[in-house]
Design a protein around this nucleic acid. Structure first.
Length: 470
RNA sequence: GCUCCCAUCGUCUAGCGGUUAGGACGCGGCCCUCUCAAGGCUGAAACACCGGUUCAAUUCCGGUUGGGAGCGCCA
């Protein structure tokens, strides 16, 4: 296969905000398709809006993609740097008669739209300069360059997700290509850059579907090859409304801080709008093998944190103990105030990790559940634990501790002792285990108690237990 | 207002004319069990509505309703 036959994809965010969940999914789909086909995945920053674009947002996008482990090919293209080339194309269009100068002022156009609105007519440029004799052009007055778009017939987008979408040309107006200050608009820049970058497939949000028709008109005016479009439905918030800052439209880094793993995000986002039969757990290598454009869904999806949690719990269990300990340490370091783990705490964390990770849905939960491992000495009891440690329970615990003198301090041996003790005293194992748990951890729930006794070691365990035993 | 898109359990989805409409998350029950999880079994839960087309519609077509997006010298 030659390079010509390889798809070239791109992710082209505008750096006016954070990389949110919708953008992340768009990036993921493009990336997966490129990796699946052996094509390329390029990154282009659409920073032509110099007023709203910020370096911070550029950094956020890059950091977000890096965290998600979506690597791009080649150098990042900054759209603003290509303004010269965009202008050059506009000049070509002007020369070929496919574009024209429009001298209408902003105020004039506002008035036009107001009138259209009042008359209940569609809001669009009325083409007042389209056929006007250039000789009538006012002297020294700024002008914009507009595309001389076809006014009859229709523009059809053969969308791989939505199917054929038809737009009557008469309902589209002549879009601005160059602003009156000579800078290119988004519409021009996108089409020119996609052509120059050799983009073959454009997978992007549904919100661009209408734009696709206009971009297609431009592509045709230039005689360039048509790209293949795939417009993915947008992701809605849990309440079905558009994603807002209040729910879901968080920077992907917020998901990192909430304790989700990047592999979780890739799996969850993939399933939000793409399917492979009944498969739910699809690790990235498998996703690369399976991904296609045909199975992208057509209807919008909502974010469901419960399912995200479940997916994360799965990947947590699959992750190596050491790696998880590092992630937990990173979460703790991000906390306010920042915390660092002592060497002892880290060793305990790693030893307890097998039973800890089986019980957590997020790294944050995991860190909280491991809290009792991080410092030494008797625990303060939470309400339920205090209630559980009755005088009788304390006495029973004291009696049990007295039987441990020569016991090997392993989970197995300790559990054996507890079972024998329970049987001899007519107790259930739980009646012995729960007071131990309360005294050892300060809580009524924890990973298996005998394993935790082993993790903490004889001295530390006894110090905690004796604080409550009678 | 105009244009475009969408519509299967609460949520994510499978389905591509004939199925007891399947799976997953969540929820209920049971089992397991030192707690909590995990795991196993199990229950409740959906084709928005109305017309066509067809021997037969969740599936194809049209409309209605309901969501969403766009309509800038923003991207």
């Amino acid at each position: 296969m030659t390079d010509i036959a390889k798809p070239v994809l791109r992710f082209a965010p505008s750096p006016t905000g954070m990389l949110h969940i919708g953008g992340a999914r768009t990036a993921l789909f493009n990336w997966l398709f490129a990796r699946h086909t052996g094509g390329k995945f390029l990154l282009r920053i659409e920073d032509t809006d110099r007023e709203r674009s910020t370096p911070e947002a550029v950094a956020a996008i890059i950091n977000g993609l890096k965290w998600l482990e979506l690597d791009w090919d080649g150098e990042i293209v900054f759209q603003a740097a290509r303004a010269g080339r965009h202008r050059e194309v506009a000049e070509q269009l002007l020369a070929s008669g496919n574009a024209y100068r429009c001298y209408a002022t902003a105020a004039e156009l506002d008035e036009m739209r107001a009138a259209q609105r009042a008359a209940g007519k569609p809001l669009r440029y009325d083409g007042r300069w389209r056929d006007r004799d250039p000789l009538e052009a006012p002297e020294g007055v700024p002008f914009v360059v507009r595309l001389r778009a076809p006014q009859t017939g229709e523009t059809i987008i053969h969308d791989v997700v939505q199917g054929d979408v038809r737009f009557a040309n008469e309902q589209m107006d002549d879009m601005v290509l160059l602003r009156s200050d000579g800078t290119p608009t988004y519409m021009l820049a996108v089409v020119v850059d996609d052509f120059d970058m050799g983009i073959t497939h454009i997978i992007r949000g549904d919100d661009h579907l209408n734009n696709a028709a206009r971009q297609m008109q431009l592509i045709k005016a230039m005689g360039w090859p048509e790209v293949i479009y795939g417009h993915v439905p947008l992701i809605h918030g849990p309440d079905g409304a558009k994603l807002s800052k209040r729910h879901g439209a968080l920077a992907v880094e917020a998901y990192r801080d909430m304790g989700y793993l990047p592999e979780t995000m890739r799996n969850y986002l993939l399933r939000l709008g793409w399917s492979h039969g009944n498969d739910e757990i699809i690790p990235t290598p498998q996703a690369i093998e399976w991904f296609n454009l045909e199975n992208i869904g057509k209807s919008p999806a909502r974010l469901d944190f419960k399912k995200l949690d479940n997916t994360n719990a799965h990947y947590l269990r699959e992750t190596a103990d050491m790696a998880l300990a590092d992630r937990v340490a990173a979460i703790l370091a991000q906390a306010t105030p920042p915390r660092t783990l002592s060497q002892t705490a880290r060793e305990r964390l790693i030893k307890a990790m097998p039973s800890l990770k089986e019980r957590a849905r997020t790294l944050v939960e995991l860190a909280a559940a491991a809290e009792f491992l991080f410092s030494d000495g008797p625990r303060s009891l939470d309400e339920a634990a205090a209630k559980l440690l009755t005088e009788a329970a304390k006495a029973s615990m004291g009696a049990f501790l007295a039987t441990l003198a020569d016991t090997e301090w392993t989970a197995h041996a300790l559990e054996d002792k507890a079972r024998v003790f329970a049987e001899q005293n007519g107790l259930k194992l739980g009646q012995v285990a729960q007071p131990l748990r309360a005294a050892l951890t300060g809580h009524t729930t924890s990973p298996p108690i005998f394993a935790m006794l082993e993790v903490l070691g004889r001295d530390e365990s006894l110090s905690r237990l004796r604080a409550y035993a009678i």
